[in-house]
Nucleic acid binder design. Structure first.
Lengths: 183, 183
DNA sequence: TCCCCCATGTAAGGTGTTACATGATTTA
DNA sequence: TAAATCATGTAACACCTTACATGGGGGA
């Protein structure tokens, strides 16, 4: 399955997640909403086919398990081949800046006039959104890393959360700069 | 062309760009590399078909011009319908946080060990990249907005550049926090 | 018993990237 | 005159989202 044209980063991220611990497709889908949702997203409709593809390529295997009476689960695990491929990807430089997209910023861009009455409500809405997201992330940090001693065992996780928090905090403070007090 | 399933934001961005001034597809492609490249990207292979589609929908029209002996250009302009559609989009709230993707951060995430020797080189590489991008953006700001009096006429443009600069500056300072001095 | 969550899959269609293709104009 | 840039298009394919489809388990 050549896949030369595009980078197919999803496969590596799935390998990375499975390397942390064997998981089901469902578990992976949750991870894309929670742990790493700030930096990559994928729906289950994208995950299940990819798991089949990775298994066909011999990079992962699965074990069927049953919960309760007959709920079938597939627990996926990395093979040595898969682990090699993961290590190669992680060790490889990532020399491009990731493209960013931000619909809100573009809307502001298209409103040329400083005094356009739409600007302040838009800024306030974004403020609410990002403030809420920031609070949510801080909450999670407090839960996952209650004290500094817990950081070292999951340094990557700590970094990722720290970065997400810093990013949101920064977005919020940028917005604040342009907000005028509400009447 | 219904397009209910997905959002098709590209069309609105093209309308927004054409609202600033009539342009060719080639000009638009440039804008996606420069002015707004920090917040949206599109290749010419995506732009030309979209222009046809927008014209078929009566939202833009074009005028054929010739440069030199026979180089054909198509200068596109918004129609009143197109302008209405643009205004509706701009005025509409953007209630979702834009998904972010960052391959580099994920690689860090998958390296659990604080002392993994790959971490520092990776951080330094990203530092170089973002530092260079930051310098480039600051350069552009100095060129486009030489003094504060020039801001008001293109407030949107100012905001967008300011935001991009702040974002990069922030990314760089986050990286610095984890960088150890090189030997 | 109903609802929410667990669990896995496929189908359809839109979005985006890379490559293929062609030709004119300007600048060094 | 060669290279870079202007200028427009299509084809192939990979990526991603939404919707369709089905069924089990656990708690209120």
């Amino acid at each position: 399955m050549a896949t030369i044209g595009q980078r197919n980063r999803l496969q590596f991220i799935i390998l990375g997640l499975l390397n942390q611990q064997p998981q089901t497709g469902y578990d992976l889908a949750k991870a894309f909403e929670n742990e790493i949702g700030e930096f990559w997203q994928a729906q289950h409709s994208q995950i299940y086919p990819m798991l089949k593809r990775l298994e066909a390529a011999g990079e992962i295997t699965h074990e069927d398990t049953v919960t309760g009476e007959k709920l079938a689960k597939k627990q996926y695990t990395l093979t040595p081949t898969g682990r090699e491929k993961l290590v190669a990807w992680v060790s490889q430089p990532s020399p491009e800046l990731t493209p960013n997209k931000d619909e809100f910023i573009l809307k502001l861009y298209f409103i040329k006039d400083v005094d356009d009455p739409r600007i302040q409500p838009m800024l306030r809405e974004q403020y609410r959104l990002h403030q809420a997201q920031l609070a949510h992330l801080q909450q999670r940090q407090a839960t996952v890393f209650p004290d500094t001693s817990t950081i070292d065992q999951a340094y990557g996780h700590y970094l990722i959360l720290d970065h997400a928090i810093a990013r949101e905090a920064h977005y919020v403070s940028w917005l604040t700069q342009y907000l005028t007090p509400e009447d």
